[in-house]
Write a protein that binds this DNA or RNA. Structure first.
Lengths: 349, 349
DNA sequence: CTGTTAGCGCTTTCAG
DNA sequence: CTGAAAGCGCTAACAG
């Protein structure tokens, strides 16, 4: 049997309370006593049973996730993952809630953050819009001692405690690298369809993409970015115009959530010869991948992100360190052949 | 506060013990009583606190992992992941151990399985060699009521309770698909380097690869399989001979663990123009990917696999159902640009 | 500064 | 068939 607090108490010749004080290094223990206890801990090779500890301190951690509203499928997927995690929140002693705000709206976002601060939650996760109002609101959370992590899209030089999401420059590079290889020697420029250059993840993806394309053996023109505001109709129009204007278009990099519009435009123009690389595995991108319209999808696992955000916020709330390496979010590459299970099945890993 | 067993007992007008009997559907409860309790459970929306339950039943589950010995880096990585999981085994109430047996040795493997049965462990995870001796040993485990899962490589028509690993046919298809796209119109045959056709995962990968290559727009010859026994020296020799014999070789699919030898042979022959797709992200493949020798690596996350095996074995030992969708292991595609953190850093997801 | 005691939510004897 | 009571490993009052 593994040693317990009782064993420590016995071999150190002190009471349970004292052992507990040392373990959680709370004040009120003499140096000598502390030393005895620490010796016993080391000698017995004690490891704390976290589950039991959580059970005992029946504290709960109310955490709030602030996400953009609207029909962006990735964001709705994120929301679904938060709710799914909420089911397990039981044993994790957390209470999760979701607040949605208009997309790309810095003011509304700042207000939502202030709302969470007012409710005195124990942690905030927010899909950031990179704007000063947001930064100052994040500063207020910090001042109030409430841990805050940015999710998916980061905020430059703010007081956020941690960023949960992929390395978007690397994501862009990956897209560029695949695009270059898939196109090979085929001539023609590539188009880039984004949501908005106001969010940091989109800017970074573009940067990485251009860098990787520039390193390819075959030089290739990259057309000016089309900003579709992650709106299907708008993205479709922009893309259709582009297809009409650039008959020799060879590829499209869709780095935001405009995929539904993109696929529609490609169907309208009957252009299944174009190499398309998109982000986020959703019902739309999955279908397009299976149909051969999209060639590769880069994905960040929403489930992993949500669980990571929860772990980090809890750790911060408890004043525990975050193991950075453990919280890195991977960039998945999907092609038709390695598509995972179904859209609403979860791998829980 | 969430409802507890006490609340159920109160509203159902029974004792804790009875509630517990119903919850874990143990015998010894009258139909009427059971109904009352179930009504209360439903009414209160009770969800069991698994952590507390585990704490109370201080039962531990000894699980044994049987892995091939030798310097196969993927297998050593698997072993490392088992040990890492062992650290957390605390709160999971499991005790993990590892047994290694000579690679591709069905007799030794069968013997190890019998050994575990004799020790009366609560679960066995085994990297299978696809042979009759192994199947019968698996049958004995089944007869003894010991849950057994195959890990990484499956066993045809055996009594294994579950397979933890990737869909290897899909993995082969993915490799073929990428190889076809990367090579584009470039002429020349491709070689296949395997470990042994005696393990099922290698056979399945080959099958998927050939199928995908056959569907490519450009027809391409696939050379006879080279079986390197996952041994660096042997793989190197085979590969070198192949390079010498086939000067216009366009690509290599390494579907086993012979990557060290493969990379050495390519270096010997100064052939960095060949498109190489390999399996499993290890120190060697990572370095070769960064150097540009290998173009893509398909990976199964050893950490995920180990944790999945543990979850499944525990569930089986407890007679609980396994949520298949949750246990599916993804096939990761890595290129130079989306390589994850470091080789010994874990993402724990 | 240190110890005693009563739980957290669940399981498990052992009596009735 | 059902209930009372004791604990799992840890924390948190409250006394000393």
């Amino acid at each position: 049997m593994r040693p317990t607090v009782h064993d420590i108490a016995d071999t150190a010749g002190v009471s349970l309370a004292t052992v507990d004080r040392v373990l959680n290094d709370r004040p009120g223990v003499r140096g000598v006593t502390r030393a005895k206890v620490e010796a016993a801990i080391a000698a017995l090779g004690y490891v704390r049973d976290v589950a039991a500890a959580n059970l005992a301190k029946s504290r709960v951690y109310p955490l709030v996730f602030i996400l953009p509203e609207g029909d962006n499928p990735f964001m709705r997927g994120l929301e679904a993952e938060v709710r799914r995690a909420g089911l397990h929140s039981a044993s994790e002693r957390t209470r999760l809630s979701v607040v949605t705000v208009p997309a790309f709206d810095a003011g509304a976002l700042a207000q939502a953050i202030d709302g969470a601060i007012a409710e005195n939650v124990s942690g905030i996760a927010v899909v950031a819009v990179d704007a000063p109002e947001v930064s100052t609101a994040v500063g207020r959370a910090h001042a109030a001692g409430i841990p805050l992590v940015t999710l998916v899209s980061d905020l430059a030089g703010s007081g956020r405690d941690h960023f949960v999401g992929v390395d978007n420059i690397a994501a862009g590079r990956t897209a560029g690298s695949l695009m270059g290889r898939f196109l090979g020697g085929r001539p023609g420029p590539v188009a880039v369809l984004a949501g908005s250059m106001r969010v940091r993840d989109h800017r970074e993806r573009l940067e990485g993409f251009c860098a990787a394309m520039a390193e390819m053996p075959v030089a290739r023109a990259i057309l000016p970015v089309l900003e579709g505001q992650d709106d299907p109709a708008r993205s479709r129009v922009l893309m259709s115009e582009c297809l009409a204007a650039v008959p020799d278009l060879a590829g499209v990099y869709s780095l935001g959530a405009g995929n539904q519009g993109l696929v529609a435009a490609l169907a309208d123009g009957e252009r299944d010869d174009i190499c398309v690389i998109a982000h986020e595995l959703t019902a739309h991108t999955r279908a397009a991948l299976e149909a051969g319209t999209i060639d590769a999808v880069l994905n960040q696992d929403a489930g992993h992100e949500v669980r990571s955000a929860i772990r980090v916020l809890r750790a911060k709330a408890d004043g525990l360190p975050v193991i950075a390496a453990q919280e890195r979010i991977r960039l998945d590459i999907f092609i038709k052949d390695n598509l995972p299970a179904g859209p609403d099945e979860d791998d829980g890993n």
